[in-house]
Amino acid sequence: MLERESDLLNGLKNDDENTFKIIFKRYYSRLYYFIFEFIPYDDLVENVIQDTFLTLWNKRYDLDDDTNFSAYLFTVARNNCLYRLRSEKYRKKLFVEGSADSMELELNASILSTVDTSVYAFREIERIIEETLDQLPAQCKNVFLLRINAKKNKEIADELNISVKVVEKHVTKGLKVFRKALKDYLPLIGYLFTL
């Protein structure tokens, strides 16, 4: 089993497609959902992430020995994404200029451009978030995950076969934990941004 980053790196440099597939499977969904939060357009995100992996493959010989795949892929995905959004044509295709959605996208793009995707912070935060999510009671976590999925309370209620009232209760509870956890994260998250 290929597990360590250095093994994966060696595999890549030896043109091993299996290694490439392992990396793809490990990071695809993470990158997709991360970018999707900033740019909620399926096709665009799909393209951005696929291009990200193509870049990894095409640049495999140039990768440094201490490459951290998570950091590398997040960085490439972020840059790809910003690059696309710079294109006038793309923006026109996505939305009407001046609408609330377009304002939000502008805002998100500017935030994405300040996110520092350097190694440490990302891994650390991923770990903390995973732990925090696991601390939520099962049903509360489910609701929370669906909520992240941009589902409305009514849809969540239908999907989990519970009442809207119960969903609201879980959301409030989840948000409380979320907010408390955020408080702890804040000093750490500070590292994510360039000054």
């Binding site: 695809y28 969904s29 993470r30 990158l31 997709y32 959902y33 991360f34 970018i35 999707f36 939060e37 900033f38 805002l107 998100n108 935030i111 300040t114 996110v115 990302f122 935060i125 991923e126 978030i129 995973e130 999510l133 995950l145 992240i148 999925n149 979320f178 955020l182 994260y185 804040l186 998250i189 500070g190 994510l192 941004f193």
Partner: peptide, 18 residues
């Protein structure tokens, strides 16, 4: 503040499995 929340939120969202 929004930046930090948004990024954290995006990271939480990235834990989902496709």
């Amino acid at each position: 503040l929004y930046s930090r929340l948004k990024t954290t939120w995006a990271l939480i969202a990235s834990e989902r499995q496709m």
